[in-house]
Simulated assay, not measured.
Amino acid sequence: MVKLASARESRVYGPRRARNRSEYINVGFYVFSVIVLLGGFLVELSKERKWGLVMLLVALAIILIVNVHDLIAHLAGIDCRLPLMEFDLQLALVEFAVPLVQAVGSLLMMLGILFLFIQEKGHDGYFKLEKHAMIMLVAGPVLWLLGSIHNSCQIYERADGDVQVLQQSVQIPFLMGSLLFVVGAIMNIHDQSTMAHHGTDLLGRRFTWFGIFGSTLLVIGGLANLVKVFKMQQGELRLEKLRGGAHELLVQEREGQVPLILDGQRRRQRRQGEEAPLATVPVAGKVTPYKDVLVGES
């Protein structure tokens, strides 16, 4: 899913007065999308399978938009300076990687379903898309699973028990739901290898059931995330804000407190200064170190 509620305010969801409201909308749209996703898989069990695929497309499109919006919000929080991620492990693994990976996974699944609709036309020339569609329907959930693993890399310096319970109630359903999607997609490839199905019939029953269970877990995780964001915005959770990192360095640079120089560059400059040869000045026909000249003159 999208990045979970953070222990620091480094997101820019809009103007300062509308920031909290924008985040509520962001999380709420995700909950709505996974509910539509669950409804799409349920419709797949009926005779109107095409409408089920349309619902899946709509749900995946909303998930894609939510994650892209979340990614832009986090990049805007650091003025889109990607090199700053070297200072902040959570910024790279969670705030940047999670929405990016989730968005790409949603896009791959959308393309896979679109390829199934193209095959539904029944032309032999389109059957070569079948293999690509099945691969995309596996790659998308795999990226979702990777994003769920990255979501577990969030760091809180100090947090009370309520925060930890809500954290686990969000992470575990997302992780298990994504895993069910991966297992269902792999089993679907195995099932369809022994059949001559094409088009929308390539989504087998087992994949549909795995999708139902996985979507249910995503709904549970989304609702828990909504509760967590609400409590964090209302200040009901005792949580120490993260100190340091890329965002704080950027703020210090804006205030003129510290130059934004990488530690590696500092070490290289220090090493080069130590290894540089001393300047020499000729005195009385011989070469004398410059520092000795200064000492002698004093």
Rank of each mutant, 00 (worst) to 15 (best):
P83C: 06
Q234E: 15
R270N: 11
I186D: 03
Q167P: 01
F127E: 15
L242C: 01
R81E: 13
Q154L: 11
I65M: 05
L294N: 03
G40D: 05
K47A: 15
V66N: 03
Q233G: 02
E240S: 09
H247K: 09
A196E: 15
T216K: 00
V163M: 14
I220L: 10
I261W: 09
D79G: 07
V229W: 14
L179F: 14
Q272A: 15
L42P: 07
I63H: 02
K128E: 14
I62P: 00
H74S: 06
F230C: 07
E248G: 05
D292Q: 10
A5R: 09
V94F: 04
C80F: 15
F96S: 08
F117C: 00
V258I: 13
T200S: 09
G140M: 05
G184F: 02
I113V: 12
G235T: 03
V66M: 03
F207D: 04
R21L: 07
F115E: 07
A59F: 05
L129R: 08
L37N: 13
R271Q: 15
V281Y: 09
I220H: 03
A139C: 12
T280F: 12
E44V: 04
V54L: 11
L56G: 10
Q168A: 13
L38Q: 02
V94P: 02
P282E: 11
M85E: 08
L202R: 14
L217A: 01
I186K: 03
F117A: 00
Q90W: 02
V183D: 05
F210H: 01
Y156I: 00
A61V: 09
L143M: 07
K286I: 14
P141Q: 05
K47F: 11
V165A: 14
A76F: 02
E95L: 10
Q257M: 09
E95K: 08
E255N: 11
L218A: 00
L179K: 06
D263P: 12
R238S: 13
L146S: 08
Q90N: 04
L242A: 09
G199R: 06
M195S: 15
L179E: 04
F210S: 03
F87A: 10
L166N: 06
Q164A: 14
V138Q: 06
V251R: 12
L53V: 06
K241P: 04
S10I: 08
I135G: 05
S152T: 09
Y13F: 13
V142S: 11
R49A: 06
E48P: 00
Q119C: 05
Q167T: 12
E130D: 13
Y290N: 04
S6N: 08
S193N: 12
D292W: 09
G161D: 14
P15C: 01
K241T: 12
A5V: 11
A103R: 06
E48M: 10
P99D: 00
E44R: 15
G147W: 00
L82M: 13
M85V: 07
K286N: 11
S215V: 00
T288C: 13
L143F: 12
